[in-house]
């Protein structure tokens, strides 16, 4: 491995200085679950907004001015550019501040950063999406991207779960994918309630039940680390090789561009070399550093 080549990546340097955020405006806020919100936003400078481009899997650094910055993936699809979206759970200083904001509020945005899902590699393959909780956010950018270019891909399985029915994010997407006859949508919860009619069980267990074939398939996994750790062995059992498993990782980040140092796992910087990795790239670190 040598220094990372980012020449082929989508980048946006409208302001010259890579640390300067662009001003973006929140247009709409969707309450996904208590504590998880999706923010629709656009560049304040419409011209910059038109110049901006990104790929599924890339992330941004979002500023609540005076509080700080935090990284979130762009959870909308580049095929749907009416606005951009990100989804944040209220857990820390920046996300608590974000959750106090309403439509019309201004944020800072730097990005897009990081690599993206390898569309060329996914082309003409069966795709198995495995998501948990808010981990659906980066997958959903790719899922809509793939659905909007449906003929380029083969079978699509989506296995998505959350702790309870109330914790399911993107219910409107789950409905839409459920109705899409070209998609096999399986929703599960760890613990159901009186009205829950879907599956009950943790994601890795349901994945084992659904048992998608590994033939010409790629699995794309994102969720809490514990789910990721238990999902890879199931996929291996189903015949997926480490190269056929992709995931996108999350770490504490400050700079987003491979300088500030805190997101590395081994010699990999999650912000610079990821956030999208194949299991082959990270399997040696999963047990010890993730």
């Amino acid at each position: 491995m040598t220094a990372t080549d980012i020449s082929h990546r989508k980048k946006f340097f409208a302001l010259g200085n890579v640390y300067l955020p662009h001003i973006v405006v929140i247009e709409k806020i969707i309450e996904e679950t208590p504590g998880v919100r999706t923010f629709h936003f656009n560049f304040k400078d419409k011209k910059l907004g038109k110049e901006f481009s990104f790929e599924s899997g890339q992330f941004g650094q979002y500023s609540v001015f005076g509080i700080g910055e935090a990284p979130f993936c762009i959870s909308s699809s580049p095929t749907r550019r009416d606005h951009l979206e990100f989804t944040a759970q209220r857990v820390g200083r920046v996300t608590n501040a974000l959750h106090r904001l309403g439509a019309g509020a201004e944020l800072g945005f730097r990005g897009p950063y990081g690599n993206s899902f390898p569309l060329d590699f996914l082309k003409s393959k069966n795709l198995v999406f495995v998501g948990g909780g808010i981990g659906l956010a980066p997958l959903r950018s790719l899922i809509w991207n793939v659905i909007d270019n449906r003929n380029k891909y083969k079978k699509i399985d989506i296995i998505y779960g959350a702790r309870s029915p109330a914790d399911l994010c993107f219910k409107y997407d789950l409905d839409a994918w459920g109705k899409d006859k070209t998609v096999n949508m399986v929703t599960t919860v760890d613990k159901g309630d009186d009205t829950w009619k879907g599956k009950v069980g943790v994601v890795p267990k349901i994945l084992e039940e659904v048992a998608p074939s590994a033939r010409e398939a790629v699995a794309i996994v994102c969720g809490p680390p514990i789910m990721i750790r238990f999902t890879f062995p199931v996929l291996e059992k189903l015949g997926f090789t480490p190269k056929q498993m992709l995931t996108t990782l999350e770490k504490r980040m400050k700079c987003g561009i491979g300088k500030c140092g805190r997101c590395n796992i081994g010699n990999i910087y999650v912000c610079r070399d990821g956030p999208v990795f194949s299991y082959a790239q990270i399997k040696n670190f999963v047990s010890s550093e993730y």
Binding site: Y19, G66, G68, E69, C260, G261, R262
Partner: peptide, 16 residues
């Protein structure tokens, strides 16, 4: 070279 990035806001004047 590791560094941290933070904001400070004093009477409406912000600094990163």
């Amino acid at each position: 070279y590791c560094f941290d990035i933070n904001d400070e806001l004093v009477r409406g004047e912000g600094t990163r």
